[in-house]
Amino acid sequence: MLLNQFLILGAVLFCIGVYGVLARKNAVMVLMSIELMLNAVNINMVAFGFQHEVVSGQVFALFIIAVAAAEVGVGLAIVLLLYRNQTSIDVEDFDLMKG
C-alpha cells in the first residue's frame, strides 16, 4: 500500500470541500462542505500514522472528529439564529459588517 494514493484522495476531497464553501450560498451547505474538508484531513492523519506505524495519527483524527461535532453544533445554532432574524439562510444576505 502506497501512501500517496491516500494523500491524493484527501487532497481531492479537500478541494471539493473548498469549492463547496466558496460556491454554495446556503449556510447549511457551507457547513457540510467544511465537514468534507475536515474528513480529508482525517484521511491524511490516518494514512501518515499507518505509514509510520504510530498511533498518534488516529488520536489526532479522533480529536478532529470531536472538534467537528462541537463546530457543527454551534454552527447550526448560529444558522438557526440567522434564519430567525432575517428569514433567510443565504450567506449573501448577511453583509451588515461590510465596510
Binding site: 457547513l31 482525517n42 494514512a47 488516529q58 467537528a68 461535532a69 447550526l76
Partner: peptide, 29 residues
C-alpha cells in the same frame, strides 16, 4: 488502514449524530 475504532467512531459520530443534526436543521428551516 487498521483504524477500526476510528471507523466505528466515524460512522457513529458523523453519520449518526452530525448528519442527523444537519437533517434536523434542514427540515426545521
Amino acid at each position: 488502514q487498521e483504524a477500526h475504532f476510528l471507523a466505528a467512531v466515524q460512522v457513529i459520530v458523523y453519520a449518526g449524530a452530525i448528519v442527523v443534526l444537519f437533517l434536523f436543521v434542514i427540515m426545521l428551516l
